[in-house]
Design a binder for these strands. Structure first.
Length: 579
RNA sequence: GCGCCCGUAGCUCAACCGGAUAGAGCACCGGCCUUCUAAGCCGGGGGUUGGAGGUUCGAGUCCUCCCGGGCGUGCCA
């Protein structure tokens, strides 16, 4: 179905244009802020009235009169309210028809976008020198949610896991690895804990001058493609990727090896980037480094801020690789390129995007968007770390979440068999971590706190999972009653109507997330949906009712579980039938 | 110094590019399980949206200033 909000916007905008005579109007339709205001409210009339210097309420009334003459099945009733709002009540028959269409053909629920775009989403991007830590959590989870949403809308999504697999530190690591290989065959064991391996290599690098110079040499040999070094590097990268994949697997993240877009991939393109910047007359030398200065970026005393693209020693930087990658994306006819990266890098991206435009590596057909997210903080208000100040391994954090969830599941529902308990604990623990992140506005920092997210109350994954489990329980008890639960025949109670309307709003929320990349909108929606279901469940007997009422209520429960699970799936959270 | 972001209930967070009486959860107080999963539901108290001006029919949201915090700011990514 087409999103209701979109249909209303279109309808009201048309009428507003014809009534006002203006070339364009923004109806500004939003979901009603209170139930008494109906289902939706049109906010745009007041702004138009201001432009036209006429009475907002009169204009609103004119709009209402024109709309009502059109055969719009979806609008039941309109009223002008307050200073010039139009309150919209959706028609009952429309609600029934729409929801029954969805029950008949669930795939028709979320319609694809009118134009299918090619969208690159850069996310997760761990540094392969070390294991993934909390700092990778948000990007991985938010990015994965966005790719799911965009794909659901029929876009061609290209996942890009821009792993850091190139640079000075790999010289140190492969030197250490090669030396271990000669004296000990079981290097897998050595690589079982990458943190320890990294620390050992780093210690040697800092304390052993000979090792350090060997390491620097290794980088040169690796980058010039010497086979032995490349082999050691590949072995290391392969092991490191396995660590990432364990995390992805646990998190239910859709990234695979085919999504790798590693830094090393761009190695050969980098000299050309510099050459092209030079021929575009953007390159200038400053203190021995190759820089691009743009007027828009000023630092202290009004001096221009450089984007350094090549170091004094000839080495390339993150910015250089990003420029190479942008150029590749342009050549692939991509419409949007999303960078799901920490907000602290926003200046970097502003500069890179600006330079890419100035150098004409991209034109207006490609939208470059930094999808910035805030930092995960500890309860002390400092970035989240262990007590000793080290970063927390992501795998440990996830295991802890599952462990705590398991304890809780055992306590809440001792009747589950051990296998079910493990499954539920997994789903609840991982879901809680993901949901806690996705439900916050991505641009703000948030406090990571097991106690809050695993208290499993309020706006959390377990609340949503519990709503789903209750519905599954209902449906399985009603199974065998034949055709029951296929069609909603009547809307009686206000709680039923509210739930039904909410269900139908999934498509507009999904579209909004695809546009603005704020997954917390989808979370809020699902939380409200689950809340409305809980109320419906308390107020309206289902299995205790009879005839059409029971059939209708079961169908509404069926619709709700479908909406809920569809939404959870888009968030990347697995649903449960029992908990 | 300059730039970006932030400051909302005791705590953790919302608020759909300016909309109606700023919403949830936790915590606190009080109700609801012999009937569909109480990880639930219902009710209550709790706010000068850091402060002061301004813009307008209307401001948590936009502008100016001040206070407080975070991040970034030339050879890491």
């Amino acid at each position: 179905m087409q999103a209701i909000k979109q249909q209303l916007n279109n309808a009201f905008e048309q009428v507003m244009i014809s009534v006002s005579g203006l070339p364009t109007c923004n109806a500004n339709v939003v979901t009603a802020s209170k139930p008494e205001f109906g289902d939706y409210q049109v906010n745009g009339v007041m702004a138009i009235a201001k432009q036209m210097k006429c009475s907002p309420r009169e204009l609103a009334q004119q709009v209402v009169d024109c709309i009502s003459t059109q055969a719009l099945g979806l609008i039941g009733r309109l009223e002008v309210a307050g200073p010039g709002f139009i309150n919209v009540h959706i028609a009952g028959p429309f609600l029934l028809e729409q929801s029954n269409n969805i029950l008949t053909d669930p795939s028709s629920f979320i319609r694809s976008a009118e134009i299918s775009q090619k969208i690159a989403v850069d996310y997760s991007s761990p540094n392969l020198a070390k294991e993934m830590h909390v700092g990778h959590l948000r990007g991985t989870i938010i990015g994965d949610c966005l790719v799911r949403v965009l794909e659901k809308l029929g876009h061609h999504v290209i996942r890009q896991n821009h792993v850091g697999d190139w640079g000075t530190q790999f010289g140190m690591l492969i030197t250490h690895l090669r030396e271990l290989q000669t004296e000990n065959n079981n290097t897998n064991l050595q690589l079982a804990d990458l943190e320890v391996f990294y620390r050992d290599a780093k210690t040697r690098f800092d304390e052993d001058a000979e090792f350090a110079s060997k390491s620097r040499l290794s980088v040169v040999k690796l980058q010039s493609g010497e086979a032995e070094y490349v082999r050691a590097w590949e072995m290391f990268i392969n092991e490191s990727l396995k660590h990432c994949e364990t995390v992805y697997d646990k998190l239910g993240v859709t990234l695979t090896r085919s999504d790798l877009d590693s830094e090393s991939r761009y190695n050969d393109d980098l000299p050309q980037v510099i050459a092209d910047l030079d021929s575009a007359q953007l390159l200038s030398q400053s203190d021995g480094a190759n820089c691009v200065f743009l007027n828009a970026f000023k630092g202290k005393n009004g001096e221009l801020l450089p984007l350094i693209v090549q170091k004094t020693d000839g080495g390339y930087l993150y910015a250089t690789t990003d420029l190479a990658a942008i150029r590749l994306r342009m050549s692939q006819q991509i419409h949007r390129s999303l960078y799901v990266v920490d907000a602290r890098q926003s200046l970097h991206f502003q500069q890179v995007f600006a330079v890419a435009r100035k150098a004409e590596f991209v034109d207006n057909s490609l939208s470059l968007e930094h999808i910035a997210y805030g930092t995960i903080m500890g309860k002390d208000g400092r970035p989240f770390r262990t007590r000793s100040g080290e970063s927390i391994k992501l795998i440990d954090l996830l295991d802890e979440a599952v462990k705590q969830a398991h304890r809780l599941v055992r306590e809440k529902n001792p009747n589950l068999n051990p296998d079910e308990m493990v499954h539920v604990a997994n789903c609840v623990g991982i879901g809680a971590v993901k949901y806690a992140d996705l439900s916050k506005n991505r641009t703000s920092d948030y406090v990571f706190d097991f106690d809050t997210m695993l208290s499993f109350e309020g706006n959390t994954a377990p609340y949503l999972l519990y709503a789903g489990a209750r519905i599954h329980s209902l449906l399985s008890k009603a199974a065998g009653s034949g055709d029951i639960g296929r069609k909603i025949l009547e809307i009686g109670e206000p709680a039923e109507r509210a739930l039904l309307v909410k269900n139908l709003q999934l498509p507009e929320v999904v579209h909004a997330v695809a546009m603005d990349c704020y997954p917390n909108q989808l979370c809020s929606f699902l939380y409200e949906l689950a809340g409305l279901f809980m109320r419906f469940y308390e107020e309206c007997p289902i299995l205790r009712s009879t005839g059409e009422t029971m059939a209708s209520r079961l169908a509404l429960a069926q619709l709700t579980v479908h909406t809920l699970e569809q939404g959870m799936d888009l968030l990347g959270i697995e649903s449960l039938e029992k908990m």
